[in-house]
Every structure is written in C-alpha cells, then in structure tokens.
Design a protein around this nucleic acid. Structure first.
Lengths: 242, 242
DNA sequence: CTAGCACCTATAGCAACGCTATATGAACTG
DNA sequence: CAGTTCATATAGCGTTGCTATAGGTGCTAG
C-alpha cells in the first residue's frame, strides 16, 4: 500500500502525511511511516519541508484552507452574529471530523509560541465580528470578542474530541456558543427585526436608555449586570409587540 | 546538580520530573534527563511508574492536589456563583503559573482517551455548581454547566499560555468567565458587582425610564425583577454624583 | 547464622525516532 | 557540450522510550 499516482514527491508526502495523520488514531506518526507510504526516502522530506513540523504545517495549511472554505461558505451575511454562530458550529464540526488534524492545528500548544494558525482563525472571526460591530451589534471590540469566542470554541472542541464518541453531547457546544455570542452582542442582535410603532412612554424611554448605554459604555454596572439589564430593557422595549 | 536528600528513589524521581517539567520551557523532557537528575537509572523509573506517562501521571496527581487545594481554599463566600468565579480565576492562575504542568494535565488531548484529571476538575466544579442549583441560581443542570464552564476555562487558559507573557490580557479571561457564568445562572444570581461611574446621557435616559416605569404598570418584569431593575436604574441615575 | 525469598536497582542494549553529511542522478541553461 | 541547480538516495549519527537479565539488599524462617 503506497501512494503512487505519479504525483511529484512533494505532493505524495503531503498526501501520505495527511492520510496517516487522519488514521493514526491518536498515536504518533513517524517520518519513516510517512516517507515509506509516500515511496520516498528521508532526505526528500527534509529537502521540501525542512523538518517534520514543517511537513505538518504544510498539511495543516491545506487543512486550514478547507477550514476557511467551510467558514466562508456560510456568511451570506444577512446577520453577522448568525454567521458567527455558524462559524462556531463549523469549527466544532471540523474538529470532530478530523480530530488528528485539528489537534495538530489547535491542540499543539507550547508556551510562548503561538501557532500561526490560531492567529489566522482569530483574524477570520474578527473580520466577521467587524461586520457586527459596524451594525452596532457588538458591545466589546471585535478583536477581544474574537479572541474570547475562539478560546471558548477551541476549549469546547478539545473537550468534545477527548470524549468518547457515543458520549459526545453537542448541547455543550450550543450552550457555550450562545453564551459567548450573547455576551459580546448588544440586545438588538437577538432581535430579528420586529419593528413596531405606537410605543408607550416606557418603551420609548427604554429604547433611549438602551441607545445611550450602548453609545456611552456605562461602567456603572458590571458587564454581566449590564447584559441582564439590557435583556430586561429589551423585554420592555418589545412589550408593545406581544 | 542532582536531587539527593536521601529520599527514596521514587520520591526523587517525582521531584526530578516535576522540576524538569516546570523548567523545561516547552521542550520535551526525556527519561534520561529525569533519571540522571534523580540519580537513578532507567529501570528504576519503569519499576515504579510503569512508563514515562505513568511518571507524569503521578506528577500530575501531585499537581492536581495543589490545584484542588487552591480551589478549595476559596469557597466560604456563601455565594456559590461567586465561588465559581474564583474557581475560574484560580484555574487560570494555576495554568499561567505552571504552564508545563498545566499542559500535561489539560493540554495532552488525545481522541477517545479522556484524561482522568479533567473529569476530576469537572466534578469539583460540578460540586460547587450543585450548591448554586439548590439555591435556584442555575438554569441548566450542574453537570452540563460544569462541562461548559470548564471547557471555556481550559480554552481560555490554553490561549493565554500560548501567548507571550507581555501580551497576555486577563480581560479575555474575565469576559469569558462572566459570559459563561451569566449563561448558566438565573437572574437572581447577581447582586454584588463593581460600581463605577456613568455618563450623562445615560443618566437622563435612566431617569426618564425610571419615571415612566413608575407611572405605568408594566407587567413585562416580575416584581422581583422590577425591584432589581429599578435599583440598577437608580444606580445609573446617581452616577453623575460620584 | 544461614538459606531462601521478595524487593529494588544497575549493566547493557534493542528498536525506533528525527535528522543530516555526502553523493548521485536528472534537468535545465549557457 | 560544460556548468549549474534541483531532487533524490545511501548510510549513519545521536537520542529517544523501554527492557532482558542479573546482581545487590533487607527481611523472615529454620
């Protein structure tokens, strides 16, 4: 069993590494396995990729393209925060579908050395969050929101990967996802555009306070209090529609 | 430099492994380094711990005791959710103080094989969340809340560890923490938050809403909610004086 | 006191690992 | 056709985790 196909050795190495990584079942993958499956010898690997990690980086880059493609396939961007939710789910699905690859990408943490891939994923999410921000749907800077959401997203995915398949409960993901998105979003983001007229003075005042709070970043309340406060405001603001 | 102290070889191995792990700076720690520092030879290690991972598990067990001790030192506060918050912060601090040990404990993810240590940490958090649940402060089962919070906690800690020290921003942790706690808690859970200053337009709107609310009989909020809501409104309204 | 026994540790070494110094072939360029 | 560059192979270095085997140590029994 070898990868022949008359591809150039570089591509064969990439394919062999990806295949072994995907089927390794958690155990380590050696350069000898890879080169044997690719039908080349060791120096070829090091000529093209520098070292083992370079090869894995290249595999990860291809995997990341797939990841990004998945992330971008969504995003017809009616609702940026809805797109963020789909990005989250796509992230989790990617991790569960290719756990080995995912672990190389996001699970290979070393102190003081941040994998470039994480920064890329962060930038991707920040880009999307920027759209939400310009629509006034974010109450924290997009960069920090992206870092926070991605951290939780990775944490949840790692935990799901570590669990045995039959015990995996995607509710964990959904719950954490909604919590994070809710935390960074303003209240109007949870609104699907129900526009109403003939509001009472309470509603008007609530909307005014709402806007003022969002414009001025009141720090009179803690951020978590503010979330709850705004949720109530939202309830009051929508009271005329119910 | 070797660990002598006339301790039995088993303890010397544990100490040597812990020390090398703590100072390895991210690079791998070999059994030869450990045995040399402990002043023993290889078979001694394998006699006592089975294999390298067994040794690390033992080190982790000791580290986990320290972790648990830190988690239990807090918790007299009467407010379970406040204790959860401290558990979160303690978790992050532990990870940042001993990143190598933390990575062995929480960063060594393999598919289908869940480290027992994660389950223990989860149980610890679930136990605390149970107290919140009996007080009616949880709106999700404690088990799922614990898993969700812990997943986010680990994700945040790993991300902070991966960052260079000067760039570490603990706001990421605080924000994610509050988001998760808020997500699992009922509204009555929070009352003691940090009090800050406010902005004038907010104050105006708050006063308006306050007056409007008292003039009308809104049934959008329960009486207890309304009470807290008005209290916060009052706080915002008075912020100009501070 | 000695014999036996269980426990613990050391000597020496295996197979596998990541990686490389060196050399050879192929392909393009002048 | 000579020269240069790129790509691959031969062979092997140093290190890794781990172990088959044997020897030393301290105990209890006769």
């Amino acid at each position: 069993m070898s990868i022949d196909g008359q591809l150039p050795p570089k591509a064969r190495l990439l394919r062999a590494a990806a295949e072994l990584l995907a089927n390794s079942g958690g155990s380590a993958v050696s350069t000898r396995q890879i080169t044997q499956l690719a039908g080349v010898t060791a120096p070829t690997l090091y000529h093209h990729f520098g070292d083992k990690e370079g090869l894995f980086d290249a595999v990860v880059a291809a995997g990341f393209d797939e990841y990004v493609a998945g992330e971008r396939d969504f995003a017809p961007s009616g609702q940026p925060l809805e797109d963020i939710r789909r990005m989250w789910d796509n992230h989790v699905q990617f991790g569960l579908k290719q756990p080995e690859l995912y672990l190389v990408m996001f699970g290979n943490i070393r102190p003081e050395s941040r994998p470039a891939i994480v920064a890329d994923a962060e930038a991707l999410m920040e880009e999307m969050l920027n759209k939400a921000a310009v629509s006034g749907q974010l109450n924290v800077p997009p960069k920090e929101a992206a870092r926070s959401i991605l951290a939780a997203n990775v944490g949840v995915t790692l935990m799901l990967i570590a669990e045995k398949v039959p015990e995996r409960n995607l509710e964990l993901s959904a719950m954490t996802r909604d919590a994070m998105i809710f935390a960074v979003s303003t209240e109007q983001a949870r609104d699907n555009g129900s526009v109403d007229s003939g509001k009472s003075s309470v509603v008007v005042a609530a909307i005014a306070l709402n806007a003022a709070l969002q414009a001025s970043h009141s720090d009179q309340l803690s951020s978590s209090e503010l979330k709850l406060f705004l949720e109530w405001l939202h309830r009051i603001s929508n009271s005329s529609t119910s």
